[in-house]
């Protein structure tokens, strides 16, 4: 077992993976929770990509949504509250060949982990970030989150929350090196699949804000959107998220948006959100931004002889 086998990768070529190969423990989220949909989509994407389960790592912080790694049969790292992103960046830093996913909540990412959010986007390591944004703290039972709408009655703000919601899209688009910014809803499986697939295929940090149902604590927020799809604005473009014609018909409101156009992306993110409209689709994508992992992994395959020689050379400088 502990010893290097030269031909392990050859076996893998011949393996065929089914959904079962990616399913971990039975998910313990509430009935009707949007997290189930994201999980099922992730299973399908890995199956369709035929990625060996041992090659993917799902990394999370703490929260209901951060339980996701336990429900995968891949490698997983269920860390501390707010720190999913630096943990994931560390995994990727010297193991660039691993397929890295991050599962993080709105509190995990936008509140306690906000500093890491900015910097992880700027590092632009090759990974897929799933933000499960239910606009509430789920695990700790209904406290206000940074994305909770103003006046939302929560356990910490029983008379209604004081502040306007943070806009994760304008913030992320404003971060230097943002390379893939998308928004999607959890209750449209084909759109969720296409969005996460595009995110996964993008080389760089893919930031996907998933508007997620939490029927137990804030049923109203997403119910409203489910009942009135005119509150959603579908972004269409041949370089954007592929949308089949049948799917498009479910969105009464849509517009063309070229994901290489940052100015318009920012306008949409700001103006539509201000009007209470949720843009869905790809806001921005740029494949030319360098990935920090290309730098941080340099030399990860250097030989022992070379390491010793370089250290000896370093010692020479202090020899007396």
């Amino acid at each position: 077992m502990f010893g290097i086998k030269a031909d392990w990768s050859l076996d893998i070529q011949e393996r065929y993976f089914t959904i079962d190969d990616y399913e971990g423990n039975e998910a313990r989220w509430c009935d009707g929770c949007g997290d189930h949909a994201v999980l099922a989509t992730a299973h399908r994407i890995l199956r369709d990509a035929q990625l060996p389960p041992e090659k993917s790592v799902f990394i999370s912080g703490i929260g209901c949504s951060s339980r996701m790694p336990h429900y995968m049969a891949t490698y997983g790292l269920h860390g501390t509250h707010g720190r999913a992103l630096p943990l994931a960046c560390g995994v990727k830093s010297r193991r660039p060949e691993l397929d890295v996913w991050v599962a993080t909540g709105d509190g995990d990412c936008f509140s306690i982990g906000a500093g890491h959010w900015i910097h992880a986007v700027r590092y632009n390591m090759d990974m897929t970030i799933l933000i499960f944004d239910n606009q509430i703290y789920g695990l700790t039972k209904k406290q206000t989150s940074p994305t909770s709408p103003i006046d939302l009655k929560t356990n910490t703000h029983p008379e209604g929350s004081f502040l306007d919601a943070l806009n994760p899209l304008t913030v992320t688009l404003g971060i230097t090196n943002a390379s893939f910014v998308a928004q999607v809803i959890d209750w449209n499986p084909p759109l969720l699949y296409e969005t996460l697939k595009a995110a996964h295929e993008h080389k760089g940090t893919s930031f996907v804000r998933i508007i997620q149902r939490c029927p137990v604590f804030v049923d109203g927020i997403t119910k409203e959107l489910q009942n009135d799809s005119s509150k959603l604005l579908l972004l269409k473009h041949h370089d954007g998220i592929p949308v089949a014609a049948g799917l498009e018909r479910l969105f009464p409101e849509s517009r063309e948006h070229d994901p290489s156009d940052m100015t318009t992306a920012l306008d949409i993110a700001r103006d539509e959100t201000t009007k209470g409209i949720i843009p869905v689709g790809l806001l921005y994508k740029n494949e030319d931004i360098p990935c920090y992992s290309d730098l941080s992994a340099l030399g990860h395959d250097i030989t022992d002889e070379d390491k010793i020689a370089a250290t000896n050379k370093a010692l020479d400088a202090f020899a007396i």
Binding site: G79, V91, S93, H116
Partner: peptide, 15 residues
């Protein structure tokens, strides 16, 4: 915090 989390990520991944 990020510095140690990053190191833990790398260690977890075998480095």
């Amino acid at each position: 915090i990020a510095a140690i989390a990053f190191a833990i990520g790398s260690s977890y991944a075998g480095k």
